[in-house]
Design a protein around this nucleic acid. Sequence first.
DNA 1: TTCATTTCTTGCCATTTGCCAAGAGCATTG
DNA 2: CAATGCTCTTGGCAAATGGCAAGAAATGAA
Lengths: 193, 193
Amino acid sequence: MSSPKLVRFFKNSNLVSPKAAEEIASTFSPKEIKKNNFLLKEGRVCDEYFFLENGFIRAFANDIDGNEVTTNFYSSGQVVFEVSSFFNRTVSKENFQAIVDCEGWYITYEQLNNLFHSMHDFRDFGRSILVKGFSSLKIRMLSMITETAEQRYDTLLKTNPEIFQQAALKHIASYLGITDTSLSRIRKEYTKK
Amino acid sequence: MSSPKLVRFFKNSNLVSPKAAEEIASTFSPKEIKKNNFLLKEGRVCDEYFFLENGFIRAFANDIDGNEVTTNFYSSGQVVFEVSSFFNRTVSKENFQAIVDCEGWYITYEQLNNLFHSMHDFRDFGRSILVKGFSSLKIRMLSMITETAEQRYDTLLKTNPEIFQQAALKHIASYLGITDTSLSRIRKEYTKK
DNA sequence: TTCATTTCTTGCCATTTGCCAAGAGCATTG
DNA sequence: CAATGCTCTTGGCAAATGGCAAGAAATGAA
């Protein structure tokens, strides 16, 4: 029995037929991740193409000094996986951790490829997920170069308020490319306005 | 008559058969771009999936204040196109400009999709290009967050020395996320060592 | 509830980087 | 060759951000 939300997710893309959407969704298996547990740990190969139905996930890497750097946040309705590790079958440098209890649906790399072969249109869907992730990273990169930390904070607050309800400020700070100290100061200035 | 370099490019990927590599390459058309001319201008839809055989291309966007921000550099042997504009058929916010006289080979969006349908394996190749671009942007983003400007300069110098032979320092500066003034100072300090 | 731990804030000071303006160095053009 | 316009460098100063440490606040565990 597959998830109505998952079916809708595929249908809304308009890249697969309604019938195909049902069929694709039916190959996904349910998966729960309890708060603080990991969908993926660094050093392992990502083998789950995971649709997050409920919950919140943070992706992070460790820099040279051992500090955690948040690379992304995922809220419900998004596909969560480490692109490079998953498609290249290489070891991941990133961790994906549930910030709250999560529920979702996944398929493995093998299952995904089977779907690509059997469900022609699903490839376009898969590509669109990739393209979307790529584009948003490009936008983020540009804002990193052209905007101040306060502007980036402001944008994140307006476009992704849910992040502030779920994630710790220190995790948001490294996502914004600043220290938690700086974020704290920015917030102080910000509330004055 | 197709390019031996292009054929080799496909073969080396190991994602398409030698025979397919020949066939795929044969659908590409030659294209020259003279120095300072554009492969793509902002406001237009990217419709060329371009293999750069010789030359050097810079991609850039304009920020709010009208400053050019270099988003990428492309040297020979790379595929050059704006992912989001090309696949989503949307208007590009980026420009791709030849820094020196360039030669290469291209196919249109339509031709690419035809190839995807007729040459099964070519899809995997296309995906690998996408994944590669995504991964390197992720790495760049991480270095943007965790490293100082001088460290980023050092890495770029060691991993992509050709960029310094081709591009203007002010263009490299915005690629590194700093002003040309800062880059100049960093280089001054750097040569002392 | 109480204790321990983690997160967040704040102050102080150092460092990095940006902004502006001037000048030097180069290349292009007429 | 001279004039013009870029690019790059440099100096002075301001603003943004980081590092460290202490304390407050919030959270989680016993």
